[in-house]
Amino acid sequence: MLTIKNLHAGVEDKEILKGIDLEVKPGEVHAIMGPNGSGKSTLSSVIAGKEEYEVSEGEIYLEGEDIGELAAEERAHKGLFLSFQYPVEIPGVSVTNFIKTAINESRKAKGMEDMPANEMLKKIREKAELLDIDRKFLSRSLNEGFSGGEKKRNEIFQLAMLEPKLAILDETDSGLDIDALRIVANGVNKLRSKDNAVVVITHYQRLLEYIVPDFVHVLHDGKIVKSGTKELALELEAKGYDWVKQEVTA
């Protein structure tokens, strides 16, 4: 599904990602953990196609296709989705209009007609229900004045609407209360299948109790320094990152 080979990326003279290798297969859940500033969000932005970062070395493949040269929107059309750590506020565009535009632009890119209005409405209603989102919420301006948790829930609503092949969830759990976390995780799990995959970036074991990872990776200073199964997350929770760092420097 997603293959990353020796990825180096950064800004101007600063290298942030220093050689990342990652292989995510269909149906899998991977968790990426790691201290603040280790490069988790940078990695997700680079995968999503943010032009601000320069890729100096390495490749990114989605379903076998090198997507390194593709624009962000083209990557989205190929089934990539990034749930932002800090979703952007866009006053003046309602959640509904935004999602309609997003869906129809993706369809257009695939040579499909716009989604019929009633089908769209039905889908919106269904997914809003799945994530326990109030209808009134959907007519509000995108993320404007949303609470931290509402923003995250709205990200997962978009995920549910767009049904990507590969979803990267960048700290979707931060800002969510316990109930919301359960609802959101539940939503993500409902969308999982043997044909898609999820990469969750998180600082906490809690989310991983709901979205159970097949693999856990530790990112430190732009490199994956340790990979393991879900037990690794528990170990990190108990011991912190220092022991991993020490292992690396040792």
Partner: peptide, 14 residues
């Protein structure tokens, strides 16, 4: 530009 990137990751062309 941050907002534009957000839209593009949702499949909305530049």
């Amino acid at each position: 530009e941050e907002a534009l990137f957000y839209l593009r990751t949702r499949g909305i062309p530049e």
